[in-house]
Design a protein around this nucleic acid. Structure first.
Lengths: 185, 185
DNA sequence: ACCCAATGCCTGAAAATTAGGCATTGGGTG
DNA sequence: CACCCAATGCCTAATTTTCAGGCATTGGGT
């Protein structure tokens, strides 16, 4: 089954979220907007935070699913940015609410996965100590998380593409050096 | 209830119809595209022609519902053209198929209704004989139907906006004269 | 002339949606 | 401060929608 109703609830919520902050959106508003019974909301979602969680987890799943086709970790970050931009105001309202932690959970999840895949490619053939590998992962995922967080903090006003391109260049250099150091140890 | 599944079936059909003609689209294709059971299609629609009929009738209802806000009969025709353009290839595939009659039924329906409303405004205060009123209605609805038919026949390649503007000017002159003649009789 | 996919329909089971009601909560108003 | 009312989260039972599986018929293509 395709769960059109569930998708409609999510869409209505995002729609309302582009109009006003979460604090001014009730369950009744959502079900009224998509023309269903209030109970149907609770059939699919425990409450509004869970609804947010579902939405970002579906976004994460969509990005992760297409990640194997990405060439670089930066491409994955771009997918995150595109997803955020496609519902800009809604994302900002989530980020600037008591539910920021939900969005950050999503960010970490995508970044962690992307790095896992990316490093497994880049480090193919190199033998790195477990400890050093962990540090690399932490470095890269923190970089990704930080970039997006900073962008959100400024209400997505940065020229994020340019920033991203330069940061990815820096990242490549850093990584090359890290691999070099770790291997000679 | 909002019948999201029904809407999804219609959307999938329109989508497939932009890719290939009706003769190459099966019920199975449709239900596969929107990820539902084949029986669910038959729950909502008798067959594909009925599906087409439902879609155009919903389009007609949407146009008719907003028509009271239109200023002129030409505005209503514009709504028809916009609706057609929003799914151009699909409409052409319907028009150039054995189901052209369904689309024409929709056209007549919208034109007839628009004229009814339009004339009731324009002729307010004039007293016109029943017979002459019928002729005016036939004249105007034929004009509308003919314009759109001609446009479809040419695969929507005409600069229809310009044509429409000039035709509506001519129409206004004709109508003024008709009213004048009918009243002096 | 044959075949096979598509059609239209049927049944019964499962899932989703609804109506209506209940106790609790918390923010805003008098 | 007390009050109120809208919103919440939950419940039950009825209804509607969707599904799985099967069956006879049809019609276009090989």
């Amino acid at each position: 089954m395709a769960n059109f109703t569930k998708k409609a609830i999510e869409a209505s919520f995002i729609k309302l979220l582009t109009e006003r902050p979460i604090s001014q959106i009730t369950v009744k508003d959502i079900v009224t907007d998509c023309g269903i019974n209030r109970n149907t909301f609770y059939y699919y979602f425990e409450d509004i935070p869970k609804l947010i969680e579902t939405i970002v987890e579906e976004d994460a799943a969509a990005i992760i699913q297409t990640y194997p086709t990405f060439d670089d970790f930066g491409d994955c970050l771009e997918a995150v940015l595109d997803t955020a931009l496609s519902k800009k105001q809604a994302v900002l309202h989530i980020y600037h609410s008591a539910n920021r932690d939900i969005y950050e959970m999503y960010l970490w999840k995508v970044c962690d996965y992307a790095i896992e895949v990316y490093l497994s490619t880049v480090l193919r053939g190199h033998k790195i100590k477990e400890n050093d590998l962990d540090i690399m992962k932490k470095y890269l995922s923190s970089l990704g998380f930080g970039i997006v967080s900073n962008w959100l903090r400024n209400d997505m006003s940065d020229d994020i593409r340019t920033v991203l391109t330069r940061l990815m260049d820096i990242k490549k250099g850093m990584l090359r050096e890290m691999i070099h150091r770790c291997e000679e140890t």
